[in-house]
Design a protein around this nucleic acid. Structure first.
Length: 676
DNA sequence: TTTAGGG
DNA sequence: CCCTAAA
């Protein structure tokens, strides 16, 4: 029996808690999360190998600072006109390398503050700080591309001009495929938000707004064929765009929770980055970057003087970028925790290559994964000229496609903040754990251990068909082969983006400005949000279609992986996004506690937050704890959204009441038990 | 799984 | 919010 006594408590009526549940059969809590970090990955070998042999025409990818600078300038000039809605802001002239231009821009937006603050913080945390050129570059590129797209026709030409300069610099370039992109846009319901001006169209490609809750699925992005600035015959692989679907966890869902005024970025990649929590409302379509990094034979050697410095810079950049990322706290945290290191290192040297390699544990896994996660990019590898020495293969990668990114940003955000957001997203992707995939004649080369010779990559005729892809971190989608848990994956996880849904369970919640936009998503709160897995699957499927070359694998991989993937990788180590309780939620909580008392959090949850999946009874309990604390401290000491004093008073009253009750009950309990 | 608390 | 010991 359960004894419930009705107390006279003034409130609606408190009830004595039912008999302690303690009696319930105890369950084993067993789940232990273990986090495994696995460094060992062989996958990367292949890349490394290639990288080692790649010769970059230009300079090393890291591009010397000056080059980068040039590039920026070039881009700017060429691509941007002042009038265009989006301007690419090149970094300040010389300073490009040093600072992230974006940040500068950002200043305008509310975000800025956060950014600035954060960055330092991160730095401290990570201990790594540096300016990065990279970020800037990316940003600029991206912007440019977007712009380019708008302009389309003209665009191309412009770019080229610019690009030429850029290239030399060895920087990344974007290509825009106008046509394709446009199409995509069409397909997508999305609208470009970013640009305000009519001219904004360019944005479209880059940024797509999705009407739907971002969390879920991005529409399949159509494949796009990247154009290469180079003019080189573009082989376009119709790679599918990676659509990334953001997976959101239930928990993450509510956007309302998002407090970040600024923007949150989600990584499109399903991958496990722990980093991201953010969910995105707006999507940036992935863009293609062009990377014109040039690698020298020796990775080590990249020590060409210039390069070397670059190397460092790059590394720094990445780190910094991370630090800067807007990514919500959680994300950052994740980053920090995880594996930042891994990735960074890789990148630093080789640029993308490394990073990926590192992240990826195994090639095979990667490829598979990639399918699942995103197919990311097609490689633009144009042609590689072929080896001068018998033993070396020269490859020139003209562009990389960036995985699709989802970005959430308030309409009120400034262009500068948008830029930054995009940059951060890109950075996150890169830094987070992009994997490099190698395609040969459209097929993925899975075996990392094979030599170029063995794979045929070194053959002249093959070079043309050699492609590289940037893939989301596999970690998310562990290859079927790997046991789900396989430690390997973990490393990848780092990257895994967390997505956050904007929607707040109880609509009431969303305090944020975005809210309006988010409003649509509210439902997503309720878990309606598709699971990442699903998304990935779909996406992958789509992608696969799009991708001519690599289709099967990806599909398969997807198919296999999907189900499990999410849960595990995702969860592992992932910290839920912070979702401050809204006043309405607090009110509901208080009311429920008044009625049910403390100690019955499950009931409270069921009663008042049954539809708020992201609020667990533990959360409610914790919230109550904090409410009690908050109620006891002076208003000046309180932080966050102010809770009406009235509620706090109720909290104290109820808390006192139930505490007393509990005490009584304890005394009586023995009897009760007997009775029962 | 749920509670209860510390971190 | 997370993590965990206890129940």
């Amino acid at each position: 029996m359960v004894l419930q006594k009705r107390l006279d408590y003034g409130f609606n009526g408190y009830q004595v808690p039912a008999t302690p549940r303690a009696t319930r059969s105890a369950r084993r809590r067993g789940a232990i999360r273990k986090r495994v970090d696995d460094n060992s990955m062989g996958a990367f070998d292949l890349l490394a190998t290639i990288a080692g042999k790649l010769l970059l025409e230009g300079e090393s990818s890291p591009a010397s600072s000056h080059t980068s600078k040039d590039q920026c300038a070039g881009t700017k000039e060429n691509c941007l006109d002042g009038d265009k809605p989006l301007k690419v802001e090149p970094c300040d002239q010389g300073s490009c390398d040093r600072r992230i231009p974006v940040s500068d821009h950002i200043s305008q937006g509310p975000n800025q503050s956060s950014c600035s603050k954060e960055s330092p913080v991160h730095q401290n945390e990570s201990s790594v700080m540096t300016t990065s050129n990279c970020s800037e570059r990316f940003a600029s590129d991206i912007l440019v591309s977007g712009k380019c797209k708008n302009e389309t026709g003209s665009f191309t030409s412009k770019i080229e001009a610019g690009s030429s300069g850029c290239r030399e610099a060895g920087e990344f370039k974007l290509d825009g495929e106008v046509k394709t992109l446009i199409k995509d846009e069409t397909n997508k319901s999305a609208k470009v938000l970013i640009g305000t001006g009519p001219g904004m169209c360019g944005l479209e490609d880059p940024v797509v707004w999705e009407g739907e809750p971002p969390a879920l699925v991005s529409s399949d992005s159509s494949t796009k064929v990247p154009m290469y600035v180079d003019h080189i015959p573009q082989r376009s692989f119709p790679t599918s765009r990676d659509d990334v679907k953001v997976v959101s966890r239930d928990d993450d869902e509510n956007s309302s929770g998002c407090t970040h005024p600024v923007t949150s970025i989600k990584y499109s990649r399903p991958a496990p980055s722990r980093i991201g929590d953010r969910r995105i409302r707006k999507i940036l379509a992935s863009k293609y970057w062009k990377v014109a990094p040039k690698l020298k034979d020796d990775i080590h050697s990249n020590s060409y003087r210039d390069q070397k410095p670059n190397y460092h810079n790059r590394k720094n950049c990445y780190k910094r970028q991370r630090s800067q990322m807007n990514i919500p706290f959680k994300k950052r945290k994740l980053f920090d925790r995880n594996a930042v290191l891994n990735i960074d290192e890789g990148i630093s040297r080789e640029g993308f290559f490394d990073s990926r390699g590192k992240g990826i544990t195994g090639d095979a896994s990667c490829s598979k994964m990639q399918g699942a996660a995103m197919k990311s990019s097609s490689l633009a590898g144009q042609h590689s000229s072929f080896q001068s020495r018998s033993s070396h293969v020269k490859l020139r990668i003209k562009s990389f496609r960036v995985p699709e990114l989802f970005i959430e940003i308030p309409d009120t955000a400034t262009v500068g903040s948008l830029k930054k957001t995009v940059m951060d997203a890109v950075t996150a992707v890169l830094g987070g754990g992009v994997c490099v995939g190698v395609l040969l004649q459209g097929k993925k080369v899975r075996d990392d251990n094979k030599t170029l010779q063995q794979t045929g990559i070194s053959q002249d005729n093959q070079l043309d068909s050699l492609g590289f892809t940037l893939e989301p971190n596999p970690s998310q989608t562990p290859p079927p082969l790997c046991s789900g848990d396989s430690p390997r994956m973990l490393p990848c996880n780092v990257l895994q983006p967390l997505t956050r849904y904007p929607s707040g369970p109880t609509s009431e919640a969303s305090p944020e400005p975005h809210t309006a936009s988010l409003g649509n998503f509210i439902e997503s709160d309720h878990d309606s949000a598709p699971s990442p897995t699903d998304m990935s699957a779909e996406k992958s499927t789509t992608d696969s279609k799009a991708l001519v070359a690599v289709p099967d694998m990806s599909v398969e991989a997807l198919a296999v992986v999907p189900g499990h993937r999410k849960s595990k990788r995702f969860d592992i180590g992932q910290r839920r996004i912070r979702r401050p309780f809204s006043v309405a939620e607090v009110e509901a909580l208080v009311q429920a506690v008044e009625k049910l008392g403390t100690g019955r959090w499950r009931d409270v949850k069921l009663r008042a937050f049954d539809n708020a999946k992201h609020r667990t009874y533990v959360d409610l309990k914790d919230k109550w704890k904090t409410l009690v604390h908050t109620a006891r401290i002076s208003p000046q000491q309180r932080r966050g959204e102010p809770v009406p004093q009235e509620l706090l008073d109720r909290v104290l009253t109820a808390h006192a009441y139930w505490s007393q009750q509990q005490a009584k009950q304890q005394l009586k309990q023995p009897e009760t038990c007997l009775l029962v």
